[in-house]
């Protein structure tokens, strides 16, 4: 996997306990077109506190271009921003 750290737009549901579950997200390609990716499975979720900045890292799996790909999403709690971290 390679680090991308691209900001993304996403649809997420939160549990009563406040745990986010990404459902789908869309990413803008270089030719300004949007690409929607549905998250089929969340494999792991872990918290990161680097530099005191809390972030949640989701390792997910989806079908992209006919291939089952594993990728990581990052949620920055402080700013409520979602990123495509690694793919």
């Amino acid at each position: 996997m390679k680090v991308y750290m691209q900001p993304i737009e996403s649809i997420v549901w939160f549990t009563k306990e406040g745990i986010p579950h990404p459902i789908r997200f869309r990413i803008q390609a270089e030719d300004q077109t949007y690409r929607v990716i549905k998250v089929s499975r969340i494999i792991t979720r872990q918290e990161e506190k680097v530099a005191g900045n809390r972030m949640l890292i989701f390792r997910c799996q989806s079908e992209i271009n006919g291939l089952l790909r594993v990728f990581e999403l990052k949620y920055e709690i402080n700013t409520c921003k979602w990123y495509l971290y690694k793919i």
């Binding site: 680090v3 750290m5 680097v50 530099a51 971290y85």
Partner: peptide, 13 residues
């Protein structure tokens, strides 16, 4: 160090 750690977290290589 703090700046470096933060930049790494933000995806800097």
């Amino acid at each position: 160090s703090w700046e470096a750690a933060y930049r790494l977290q933000q995806g800097s290589s």
